[in-house]
Nucleic acid binder design. Structure first.
Lengths: 316, 316
DNA sequence: TTTATTTATACTCATTTTGAGCATAATTGT
DNA sequence: ACAATTATGCTCAAAATGAGTATAAATAAA
């Protein structure tokens, strides 16, 4: 039996939290600025086992201290531990392992402070107004150039970026980010010394440490999860119109949906009940709905099976 | 900006791997026995940042050393860090964080060594022959008793165990295990000093450390993943009959499926192509299929959308 | 005050998918 | 030859889905 003994290596675990909300037609996350850094960061801090009985307790503390919010539900995303992807070349004397968490917030209980648009950091992920130009204008050509020397990655690129007949899968956010990093197309890659020259053109705003990687994980997870669990409602206010719910959905998955069918989907799902009130805005007033909590026992805990339209028939 | 400095706490990270395979009508995992311990364990070892550039490299090394297998694809499951759930009351001088990984193996390239039946450790998860007796005979009554003092957990129990009209969701493997642990119904809870008396009746075979928790995570993840990614084929041999594929599927999700519809589902999915060969066994010979790799670009990377039968219509 | 614009909501309709079976085919064991 | 067993093909009704058309109820503009 192996004794758990790694010698005298000092390991440091950092816990970072992506706090997301939907606000003003934007998917936003809680961002912090540091005086000595142009890139922003997430709230984060070290896991201190003597003070934090669990990592969740630790992350809650850091978030409370740094952005003054008491988080409700949080979800662990991933633990990153690859050397050299944290703080670049700088002292890795203490090896840093990074654990990412996801938290959802409602637009109301935002608290002051800075919220950043998520798609500002991932412009290629927002397809609400159609395929983003940056893909064909910048990303794909650059990846192609990179693939010449790295043809073993061709299959990954094809899958992640939906090329050569493959479909764009909106859940592959992290894989796309990783490929851009490996190909040296984003600033973090240059910062980490992975590529000599900085990228010709900045692809999305960079962030400190591995925080953009964590955001990519968060977005991918959220996009995936909303299809099988009712997480969307954690982003919604107490009462909301179906249109608002749809807009939040579209924000998250990054594509637009058919209005009437979305309504049918939601109403049938049983997740929602009318309040009788209506909201007044531009056009005809809309009914206000509220989330119907788990009191109705017969409903499976499914999500909204949104879909991007009928698939083109497969070839014979 | 918070400096990443946790004082001088010594953190130890253990990496454990659940290696699963389908064999002999059983879902099995690679288990190791130690002389001084009756409970079995997974292959595991400490993460040593100076020797392992990534955690994956580390885990591969431990697996190679301990069970003599070179793993193909692995997937990170979860990072557990709660105090007192590892090695019980014993020295937590070095705080242990535990990272679980999942790997899939084919029955052939098994290598020697011990494989254990997964459902031996989770008897309540195998519904292939209908609802397991242990649920109504032991688990639910015991949970009910526990709920008297812990009524805040009632909603969790209802959801996880599909009570009061809620449906059994086969993916909630971890949550069920956690509840059994919290309720003190399994041996690990007694071992960790969470409950004075050991459980009246042993619910599934216990394991060392948090390895059963990791197995629960692995099973839940696999059950979930097979619905949206073609992972099942990583458990299958090179060529296989549709029946074999179905049996593996049933093994994983723990329920039985309608044969003809399963065939229709698989054939339509495009994941599989006939080889022309047939297998001879008891009845009529079955066509042998092989997995069709990602060369067909037009196919989404979906999984097999198996389902447990039509839902009973919801009440009005 | 009409009219255009905007948004919400209701319905329709053709397809496709799904759950459930029945029917038939091709083997082996007796 | 016949029973048992497994594979495979096919049908059928119900439900879900994608894509509209039509109508309703507001505000903004003319």
């Amino acid at each position: 039996m192996p004794m758990s003994d790694s010698g005298n290596i000092d390991i440091l675990i950092d816990i970072s939290t992506a706090i997301l909300r939907a606000h003003n037609g934007e998917l936003q996350f809680r961002a912090l600025e540091d005086a000595d850094e142009s890139a922003k960061r997430l709230p984060f801090g070290p896991f201190m086992p003597d003070r934090h009985r669990t990592m969740e307790i630790g992350l809650r503390q850091w978030v409370r201290e740094q952005v003054g919010v008491d988080l409700a539900h949080v979800e662990q995303l991933y633990t990153f531990a690859d050397q050299g992807r944290y703080r670049g070349d700088e002292s890795d004397a203490r090896h840093v392992v990074s654990v990412g968490y996801l938290a959802l917030a409602r637009a109301e209980d935002a608290g002051g402070g800075a919220w950043d648009s998520l798609y500002l950091h991932f412009p290629w992920e927002d397809w609400r107004d159609g395929r983003p130009d940056v893909l064909d204008a910048t990303i794909l050509p650059a990846l192609d150039k990179w693939l010449v020397e790295n043809d073993e990655a061709a299959a990954r690129v094809r899958l992640a970026f939906g090329r050569a007949g493959a479909q764009w899968d909106e859940e592959f956010v992290l894989e796309r980010y990783e490929l851009l990093y490996e190909a040296g197309l984003i600033e973090e890659a240059a910062r980490d010394g992975r590529v000599k020259a900085p990228p010709q053109k900045s692809l999305g705003a960079p962030m400190q440490l591995d925080h953009r990687r964590i955001l990519a994980t968060a977005l991918g997870r959220l996009r995936s999860k909303l299809k099988y669990r009712p997480v969307l409602f954690d982003l919604m206010p107490d009462r909301f119109t179906l249109r608002a719910l749809q807009q939040t959905t579209e924000l998250v998955i990054g594509t637009s949906l058919h209005k009437q069918n979305f309504r049918r989907l939601v109403e049938k799902s049983g997740f929602v009940e009318a309040t009788g009130e209506t909201s007044r805005a531009r056009g005809r007033p809309a009914e206000l709905f509220r989330f119907r909590h788990g009191n109705r026992a017969d409903r499976p805990l499914a999500g909204l099976r949104v879909s991007g339209g009928r698939k083109t028939g497969r070839s014979p």
